[in-house]
């Protein structure tokens, strides 16, 4: 997350009225099925299901969420979960796992969907590798597959209450009810 994100967030950022918005894309075309390409994600994240916080998670999923809470954003002292970057955590059932290797190892394959605040994030590899390494060492996890997803678009509305408090402590104020 850059200063620019937060700086822009407070003010409406609609550009002046040139016809970018006037160009009608063919509204009648129905969108593609979101995430048709993922084999494990039954609960497609949506604006309303986010932020995902692992509130009702149990077992290995809960342990993974606990570990993810310990990982901070590279630029600010706020957990990646509280920042709203994690869209989902799912323990993949043995029977669904057709990739082979994991079946032999003791433990569960865990699939994580996450996003980044902006596409040009220079910490992408650093962060994803850290997450993979951390989660792999969680008890009961044999394998981690981390998918970067970009839809829905991350926004300040995905920052949790705890995240807002941590950001305030750090000196950044997230406006109440900010939908970015």
């Amino acid at each position: 997350m850059t200063d620019q994100d937060t700086a822009n967030a407070g003010s409406p950022s609609s550009p002046d009225g040139i016809a970018e918005q006037d160009i009608e894309t063919e509204a009648t075309i129905e969108g593609p099925e979101y995430c048709a390409y993922t084999d494990y994600n039954q609960d497609t994240p949506s604006e309303t299901s986010l932020p995902a916080t692992g509130e009702n998670a149990t077992g290995v999923e809960q342990r993974v969420w606990d570990r993810l809470y310990e990982i901070d954003d590279p630029e600010m002292p706020v957990s990646i979960v509280d920042l709203g970057l994690i869209y989902g955590v799912r323990a993949v059932e043995e029977s669904e796992d057709t990739t082979g290797d994991a079946a032999d190892a003791a433990g569960t394959r865990v699939a994580i969907d996450m996003t980044l605040t902006y596409t040009g994030c220079p910490a992408r590899k650093m962060l994803t590798e850290e997450i993979e390494a951390e989660v792999r060492s969680v008890e009961g996890v044999s394998e981690v597959s981390l998918d970067l997803v970009w839809s829905p678009n991350w926004s300040l509305s995905m920052v949790t209450e705890q995240g807002r408090a941590d950001l305030r402590e750090f000196g950044l104020s997230v406006p109440e009810g900010e939908e970015a």
């Binding site: 969108g31 593609p32 979101y34 995430c35 048709a36 390409y37 997803v149 970009w150 839809s151």
Partner: peptide, 15 residues
């Protein structure tokens, strides 16, 4: 935005 390829669709809004 209305692409038939889901991998592209996932990214368009963000960009």
């Amino acid at each position: 935005e209305g692409t038939s390829y889901p991998r592209i669709a996932d990214r368009v809004g963000k960009v």
